[in-house]
Amino acid sequence: MRILLPILASAALTLSAMPAHAGSLHKDWESFKAHRAFHHLSADGQRAVTDILKARQILSAGQTDAAIPALYDAQKRLTAATTASQKFQAAENDLHAAPQHPLPSTHHAVSGQVDWLPVGGEFIASETLAPEQKAAVASANAQLKNGDTDSAAQTMKVVGQNADFILALAPIAPFQGAINRATVFTEGRHPQQAVEALDEALDSIVFVSEDFVTTLAPANATKK
């Protein structure tokens, strides 16, 4: 985020210095805000979750062999994601779960300081949005699930500041452990146990506000 601060200041100065182009600059500013939110996301982490959901769907149909490639891809991408600059360390007790995404009853909290990885994001529309803006939010969220952040940012231009962005954080070690167990169960032709392991991984995810990660991540980077 420290790299973004000069850009932020420059954009603010330009906005005040060129009032004749305020409309155009406002659109650029809104686009920048969306890209700033996406800056927190781990691309490999996002793709790993897509692989996990794909494998879960296949395993739910009892097809173990077909699920193995997706699980292998998820493992490789999670390994790559652990070196990403987007990860940060925190105790789960310090996370403030977003009210729009309460923790499931099957969630098992992790203890102590652990590494978290932003593996997904979601826009939350306010009730005051016009129907076309709510539709844009839904489209942007669908694009995010596919890992297409550029299109999502473009789609959100019609919404502006009237939507909050929340991040899905996965505790790296427990998340990886559950995926590894699911892979072992799948290789052993035990689809139901594999699905349960994948559900454990997905249930470990905590949704928090983008503002929370913005304030927490720089502090962790300084400590490291």
Results as ranks from 00 to 15, higher is better:
residue 71 L to W: 04
residue 150 D to H: 05
residue 93 N to M: 08
residue 112 G to W: 10
residue 137 V to L: 05
residue 67 A to F: 04
residue 60 S to E: 11
residue 141 N to V: 10
residue 89 Q to S: 15
residue 89 Q to Y: 14
residue 44 D to W: 01
residue 98 A to M: 04
residue 148 D to C: 09
residue 123 F to Y: 15
residue 104 P to L: 01
residue 70 A to L: 04
residue 107 H to V: 00
residue 65 D to C: 00
residue 129 L to C: 09
residue 109 A to R: 09
residue 143 Q to G: 02
residue 127 E to A: 14
residue 96 H to L: 14
residue 99 P to D: 07
residue 148 D to M: 12
residue 136 A to G: 05
residue 113 Q to A: 11
residue 143 Q to D: 11
residue 45 G to Q: 03
residue 119 V to K: 11
residue 156 M to C: 06
residue 89 Q to P: 00
residue 44 D to G: 01
residue 80 A to N: 14
residue 121 G to I: 07
residue 148 D to H: 11
residue 95 L to A: 06
residue 46 Q to V: 13
residue 65 D to Y: 03
residue 50 T to G: 12
residue 54 K to H: 09
residue 121 G to F: 06
residue 117 L to H: 08
residue 71 L to T: 05
residue 156 M to E: 05
residue 150 D to K: 12
residue 143 Q to C: 00
residue 103 L to Q: 02
residue 45 G to H: 04
residue 144 L to Y: 06
residue 68 I to F: 05
residue 118 P to V: 11
residue 71 L to F: 02
residue 62 G to C: 07
residue 115 D to I: 08
residue 80 A to T: 10
residue 69 P to N: 04
residue 150 D to P: 01
residue 154 Q to T: 13
residue 109 A to I: 00
residue 91 A to I: 12
residue 121 G to Q: 05
residue 118 P to E: 13
residue 68 I to V: 10
residue 126 S to V: 08
residue 81 A to F: 09
residue 84 A to R: 08
residue 121 G to A: 13
residue 112 G to L: 12
residue 120 G to I: 11
residue 70 A to D: 07
residue 142 A to T: 13
residue 104 P to N: 05
residue 149 T to S: 07
residue 138 A to W: 00
residue 84 A to T: 14
residue 64 T to H: 03
residue 77 R to W: 11
residue 146 N to W: 06
residue 49 V to H: 04
residue 137 V to D: 01
residue 89 Q to N: 14
residue 92 E to H: 10
residue 98 A to Q: 06
residue 105 S to L: 06
residue 135 A to Y: 02
residue 44 D to T: 03
residue 111 S to T: 14
residue 141 N to F: 03
residue 112 G to P: 10
residue 109 A to N: 01
residue 91 A to D: 15
residue 59 L to T: 04
residue 108 H to L: 08
residue 80 A to P: 02
residue 79 T to K: 14
residue 111 S to G: 04
residue 147 G to Q: 12
residue 112 G to H: 14
residue 48 A to D: 01
residue 148 D to I: 08
residue 78 L to V: 09
residue 156 M to W: 09
residue 61 A to C: 00
residue 61 A to V: 01
residue 75 Q to F: 06
residue 124 I to P: 10
residue 147 G to K: 11
residue 53 L to T: 10
residue 109 A to G: 02
residue 97 A to S: 14
residue 144 L to A: 07
residue 85 S to F: 14
residue 121 G to T: 07
residue 133 Q to F: 00
residue 117 L to A: 10
residue 56 R to S: 08
residue 142 A to L: 07
residue 47 R to A: 13
residue 107 H to F: 04
residue 119 V to A: 12
residue 92 E to Y: 12
residue 86 Q to K: 05
residue 150 D to L: 07
residue 86 Q to L: 10
residue 118 P to D: 09
residue 93 N to A: 15
residue 69 P to H: 02
residue 69 P to V: 01
residue 81 A to W: 09
residue 118 P to I: 11
residue 87 K to G: 15
residue 155 T to W: 03
residue 151 S to V: 03
residue 132 E to G: 02
residue 119 V to M: 09
residue 81 A to I: 08
residue 81 A to D: 08
residue 54 K to N: 13
residue 123 F to I: 10
residue 82 T to R: 15
residue 51 D to G: 08
residue 100 Q to W: 09
residue 115 D to S: 14
residue 103 L to W: 00
residue 82 T to Q: 15
residue 75 Q to N: 12
residue 143 Q to Y: 03
residue 65 D to I: 05
